[in-house]
Design a protein around this nucleic acid. Structure first.
Length: 235
DNA sequence: TGCCAGGCCCTCTTTAGGGCCTT
């Protein structure tokens, strides 16, 4: 039996019925953990009622009634100057570069960004659960480190769900790929919009749709397993 | 110039190696 969440990070179940789920994605300069910096952040907040009873798509010609993305969703997407060089591959993937971010006058990860993110989170009915794919290993520890650099933190009453281990456990097919794009393809029979992939907002949309497909199981998993934000170790 | 992620899981395993997942 799998022991989740992972050792050293999480303590027992919050047993919290989350009111809001905030889907998170970061675009970054590299995967190298010594050098990585954030270049774009996107958050989409959805109340649990919109996840429990999604509207279905009348256009869908499948036997399944595919869910529609929730109409009522708060969104925040910000680009920022990472102030460290992009790896070539990251520039290719994200369409971001040091030059373009500088030309567009984007500041770095600063107090104003923290205020915007905290204000966004505080608008959502709590308790709030952040959701990211591979979040326990990448997005959450990185965000924590970016905040630590400024001596800042997110509001309390915040928990964290990583859809990667959650869906690995819920689906239970050891050999399938649990990458975000493959999960979308697995559930909806088509690729995520290639023009939107690897923008923070596009990947958040894909994550939200993947979540919607397994919303009931994922919400239950989160209530049992999600660590508190302050239990996340900085990268 | 050369540096070049890392935690987790699986298995042809535990005195290890390789693949996945995130940009």
């Amino acid at each position: 039996e799998q022991t989740l969440p992972r050792a050293g990070m999480a303590t027992p179940s919050p047993d919290v019925a989350f009111e809001s789920f905030v889907f998170l994605d970061l675009e970054t300069t590299t995967l190298n953990r010594r050098r990585v910096r954030t270049a774009e952040i996107s958050l989409s907040a959805v109340h649990r009622c919109s996840l429990e009873e999604p509207e279905s798509d009348p256009e869908s010609d499948s036997e399944w009634e595919f869910p529609l993305p929730p109409r009522i969703v708060d969104k925040l997407t910000l680009c920022l100057d990472p102030q460290k060089p992009f790896a070539h591959r990251a520039m290719e993937l994200t369409g971001l570069s040091n030059r373009s971010l500088k030309e567009n006058g984007k500041p770095g990860f600063d107090q104003a960004l923290v205020q915007a993110v905290c204000g966004f989170l505080m608008r959502q009915p709590g308790p709030v659960c952040l959701v990211a794919h591979n979040g326990y290993n990448f997005d959450f520890p990185l965000l924590r480190r970016e905040l630590d650099r400024l001596g800042e933190d997110l509001p309390s009453n915040l928990w964290c769900l990583d859809t990667l281990p959650a869906l690995q456990e819920l689906e239970g097919h050891a050999r399938m790929s649990y990458s975000l794009s493959n999960l979308y393809k697995y559930y909806y029979g088509q690729e995520p919009d290639p023009d939107r992939a690897h923008s923070a907002e596009g990947d958040v949309e894909t994550l939200l749709m993947v979540f919607l497909y397994r919303a009931e199981g994922l919400m239950a998993w989160a209530e049992e397993n999600a660590p508190r934000w302050n239990e996340i170790e900085p990268m």
